[in-house]
Amino acid sequence: MTLLVRVARSDPGAPAEFRVETFHPMTVLDVLLAIQREHEPSLGFRFSCRVAMCGTCTIRVDGRSALACQTVLPEDATRLRLDPAAGFPVVRDLITDTTPFWEQWARITPYVVPADDAVGGEPAVIPPDSAEREAIDPALDCIQCGACFSSCGIAGQPRTFLGPAALNRALVLIQDSRDTATRERRELVAGADGVDRCHYIYGCTGSCPKGLDPARSIRRLRKGGRDDG
């Protein structure tokens, strides 16, 4: 079966429509590679691991943000439209500059800041079946692919909203008992770029390739997250 693929190109003169022979199961990444191999070697797109672990191949498929390597074509698909992820400056074709995402990510101190006396002391013990682990585990597997950021109607350059990924990670770290930067994060989250800018679009939860629920994390943050000294 042939698939008619329309790809957003930076150069308006470059070919943007391709007919691709499909096989099943076929992912969007397979489609891109087929185009590059058989039709248009200059097509620009990023990928790396091919197994939804690195978060590099985020694009919009038929308007929806997703990982190219993970999006399987429906058997009866006849048309496909591919665009670069939204909210980022476009470098070329489907390649975007993801700096806006990382700027917001860095703002929430995205790592555990241990207490001074914890360094060199006993390892922290947080059992797998504890309430803390239950709270943290569902949100921990973020691969920072930016699909949520892209699909959010608020987050994106040039706005300064922290975005679903950063807020999700902020909640994880706020709830981590080993961390001592809770107050700074909560101030940021409660501030002008934090949860008050979320308007319940739910694009984030709908597009997360890891099945995370940033919208739920944001709702948790509104209710105060974890109370800490």
Partner: peptide
């Protein structure tokens, strides 16, 4: 390819 999921409704 199914997305690996840690979706627990806790």
């Amino acid at each position: 390819m199914e997305p690996t999921t840690t979706r627990t409704d806790t």
